[in-house]
Computed example of a mutant assay.
Amino acid sequence: MEKVMMVNVAHEEFRVNISASKRKTVFSLLKKQKFLFLLLLPGMLYFLIFKYIPMYGILLAFKDYNPQVGVLDSPWIGLKHFHQMFQMNYFWTVTANTLKISILKIVIGFPAPIIFALLLNELVSNKFRRIVQTISYLPHFLSWIIVAGLIFQLVSPSYGIYGFLCEAFGWQPRILMGDGKSFLQILLISNVWKEIGYGSIIYLAAIAGINPDMYESAKIDGAGRFKQCWYITIPCILPTIAMLFVLGLGGILDGGFDQIFNLYNSMVMPTADIIDTFVYRIGLVEMQYSFSTAVGIAKSLIALILVLGANWIVGKISNYTIF
């Protein structure tokens, strides 16, 4: 019995010593790398203030919120808003619109920066390459309000370039922003135009990190530019492509609120209305705060499932995962 007690005491002392050693190591690291942790502090405060503290508002989804009494004193109603949401036919309509628009943006918009980066990498003139890069980056820094104004000026049948061309060739102009199919095409084209240059930055950086000796060996073996790109460049940037693809799927239910909110109208509402614009209307316009919070939570849960599933599938196919 005494031996067992002695073993337990020794084991407890060993655990205490390990804990003390770990604390000492952590404090030593904090002291040694204090300036690096100070640089990390603004980012941590950003996520704490704008990402984690607002999660307190999740309670709204389970309460019948009354602004006069506040969140905590509002009556608890459980999953009532979720039942109401899943029984609403229009919720499934906006969900289908969101998935359709997001999937089309991934299918068309995701490969575009990759192809653009590969083409830029093949340019011989560095000066011309820098000029093209600079021009292609600029649209990213324009807000969607400005881009929407430009689009309206371009496609207007009365005073835009589209109307001028139709008049010049004797065609009958259509209201492109009022037709669901044309509106969807404008969404996709404008999204690619705005983001293709900025999205290629990461791929260009990945390409720049490839060992030049691999290209020299390929040249000696007689490989042309296309084969070098196919057998060296693309396989080397495949981990970056896989990572960005999985991260991109995390926003598959976003659909692009800024873009659609500044472009859509009542004529294309059945086609262009997405979850985010739906939440905006019922939450801020109609002031149904609890119900809109429930819709936002459902959207986040579906997006989480899609990210985990996509990460698993990409891991099975290419052995590249982000977690």
Rank of each mutant, 00 (worst) to 15 (best):
F86C: 11
N121G: 09
R130K: 11
L123F: 15
S158T: 13
W76I: 01
G57E: 02
V155D: 13
N126K: 13
W144V: 02
L154K: 03
K63Y: 00
F82Y: 12
I146C: 04
L59P: 04
I49C: 02
E122Q: 14
K63N: 01
P75G: 00
Y56H: 10
I145G: 14
F91K: 11
I103E: 13
K51S: 14
S74Y: 00
Y137V: 03
I106F: 15
F86W: 08
P75E: 00
Q87S: 05
Y46V: 09
P157T: 04
L79M: 09
K127G: 09
L48K: 01
H81F: 15
L99M: 10
Y65A: 06
Y46C: 03
S143C: 07
V69K: 10
F82H: 05
Y52A: 04
L48D: 01
V71A: 09
M88S: 15
N97A: 14
F62G: 01
A61F: 01
A148V: 04
A61I: 06
G149T: 08
Q133P: 08
A148C: 05
P54C: 02
G149M: 11
Y52I: 09
G149W: 12
F82G: 07
H81R: 09
V71H: 06
S156I: 01
I53H: 05
K63C: 00
F141I: 11
S156V: 01
L123M: 15
V155F: 15
I103Y: 13
F47Q: 07
L104H: 08
F116A: 06
S74T: 00
I108R: 01
K100L: 07
P157E: 03
I114V: 15
G57N: 07
D64H: 01
Y56P: 09
V69R: 11
N126E: 06
F47N: 08
F152K: 15
Y90L: 13
Y65R: 08
M55C: 06
R129M: 15
T134Y: 09
G78I: 09
Q153R: 14
L99E: 07
V155L: 15
A117S: 14
Y56G: 14
P54W: 02
M55T: 07
N66S: 12
V155K: 11
F116Y: 13
F82I: 11
K100A: 06
P75V: 00
L123P: 07
K127H: 12
L104A: 10
N121W: 08
P157K: 04
A112K: 11
H81W: 15
L123R: 10
L72V: 14
Q133N: 10
S136G: 06
L142D: 01
M55E: 03
Q87P: 00
V94H: 08
S102Q: 03
T93Q: 14
I108M: 01
S143V: 02
V69P: 11
K63Q: 02
Y52R: 06
V124I: 15
S102C: 05
D73H: 07
K100F: 04
Y52W: 07
W144I: 02
S136K: 09
V107F: 13
N66C: 06
S125F: 05
I115R: 12
R130E: 08
G70K: 12
F86A: 08
Q68S: 08
Y56E: 11
Q153F: 14
I106W: 15
M88P: 03
F110H: 01
Q133F: 06
F82E: 08
N126H: 07
L79I: 10
T98L: 04
M55I: 07
N126M: 06
G149H: 12
F47P: 03
F110A: 02
K51C: 10
L154M: 14
